[in-house]
Amino acid sequence: MKRQIPLIIVIGLGFIFVAHTFIPSRTSQDFYDWWVSWSKAISPFAVVLGILSLFMVHGTKIQRKAPNWQYSVVTLLAVFVTAFVGFVWGTDEGTPFLWLFKNVQMPMSATMFSLLAFYIASAAYKAFRAKSPQATVLLVAAFIVMLGQVPLGAAISRWIPEASQWILNVPNLAAKRGIATGVGLGATATSLKILLGIERTYLGSD
C-alpha cells in the first residue's frame, strides 16, 4: 500500500507514455494533455515543500541557538519581506519587489558567480603545477579558446581565432559527441530501471 501503489502508478503511467511516444493518436494526445494539466496543478505545491524545508532547517537552528544562528534570522526575514512586498505591491515593473530583485538579488547572484573566476584561475594553476601532459593539453586548449574569443587573440595572431574555432568544431565536437552518447545510454538505462520498478530510490525510505 505504502510503496506498491505509487510503484504501480509509475509503471502504469510509464508504459502509457511509451505507447504515447510510439503510437501517436488523438487518444494518446488527450492523455498527454490530461497529464500536463494535472502536473501543472500539482507543481505549485512542490514549492510549499521547499519553503517548509527552508523554515524547518533555519527554524531549528534558531530554536537551538546553533552556532551562527543569527544568519538564519536574516534568511527567514529576507523570505518574509520579499514575499510580503511581492504579494502586497505586486510583481510588476516599478514595484518594491522588482527593486529588491534588481538591487539585492541580481547583484549578489552575479557577484557570487563572478567569484568563481578567481577560483577557476586557482584551479588552473593547480592543474598546471600537476605537470601531467593531459592537464597541460586541457589548459592549452582552454587558453587558445579564451584567446580566440577576445580581440587580443586576433591582435597576437590571426591564427588564434582560427585555431580556437578548429578546437571547438573538431576535437571538442568529438568529445561532446562521445560523452553525449554515453550520457544518453546512461539516461535510457536509468529510465528503463525506473520504468520496470528496479530503481526505487525516488520513493524514499520507510
Binding site: 510503496r3 510509464g14 511509451v18 500539482i42 552518447t181 550520457v183 545510454l185
Partner: peptide, 29 residues
Amino acid sequence: WLSRYPIAFGMGIVGMGVPMSMHSSVLVQ
C-alpha cells in the same frame, strides 16, 4: 509515505524519457 503519490505521478513521464533520450542523445549522435 503519502508524499510518494505526487512524486509517482510526476515520475510517470519517465516512460517518455526512454525513447526520447535514446533518440536525441544516442541515435541522432
